[in-house]
Nucleic acid binder design. Structure first.
Lengths: 141, 141
DNA sequence: ATTAGTGCAAAAACTTTGCAATAGC
DNA sequence: GCTATTGCAAAGTTTTTGCACTAAT
């Protein structure tokens, strides 16, 4: 996706298309490793030397609210985001908190949002797997 | 549930049944508001004046690994736990992070764990709702 | 021209750690 | 008695805030 297309998406989401924003949106969509704010900050350090960490935090927060990226904090408590395109599910290790991407077609999430109580507007429904990963499984002694 | 029954559960989970642990497990199972470590600490302040916050953190971590309580951090980044008995789903507001309990029968999660990659042992599968709550919905001007 | 967004530094919030004392098993 | 757990204080991380400046619309 070109920079101007990203800029268009930002404007469509009601956000100003600034240089830092385009760069951060792009970095998040490229990075499929559920990066933290600091990960993104470092990833952009060379190309955007003046970018500050607080801008990354503020920008990610704006993106989450606008629905451009998905917030994940189940892992290690830190803010983690997922901006990769096709929606997918996550498995989270109960022991170490590692996040694994799961094919959404393994367990198709209910597509039709049911009636939820309390005036909740459903934007998306996902399936979440509570797992113990291979590393944390006590293997043969 | 009596204190000795809780103690038995702790031992069954491979944890020593200490006073603080029984109290914390009990507090978490009673509190249906997805409490933070500090919430529990304050809740037990009167009955257990000597309890320290670091013990709460350590204990909750042990409970999560043992599967006695469920870890939630999607909310505000802080550690939040859910120890209420019947498994249920959560809706999380994209704007403010508020957590709402959702009846699991609205959208029964796939019960049969499919084949997952990388030796993941599935412990539980849940449905997660990405929502905007009533408070955050821009109402009529 | 207005208003949102940026960057810096400082502050705040949350969580972990080290260690001596204690309580379970 | 041995070992895991506790409590305290201190340190470490992560995130937020205030404010002057800059850039987008």
């Amino acid at each position: 996706m070109t920079a101007s297309e990203q800029a268009e998406r930002l404007r469509a989401a009601g956000l100003k298309a600034t240089g830092p924003r385009v760069a951060i949106l792009d970095a998040v969509e490229r990075n499929c490793k559920h990066p933290s704010a600091e990960d993104i900050y470092h990833e952009l350090a060379e190309s955007h030397p003046s970018l500050s960490l607080s801008t990354v935090y503020g920008t990610l927060s704006a993106f989450v609210k606008a629905g451009l990226v998905r917030k994940l904090s189940e892992f290690d408590g830190r803010l983690r985001v997922d901006g990769t395109k096709p929606p997918h599910d996550h498995a989270i290790c109960r022991m170490c908190g590692a996040i694994f991407d799961i094919e959404p077609n393994l367990n198709p999430a209910p597509a039709a949002p049911p009636e939820l109580p309390g005036g909740l507007a459903v934007l998306e429904i996902r399936v979440e797997y509570d797992v113990v990963c291979a590393t944390c499984t006590p293997t043969s002694i």
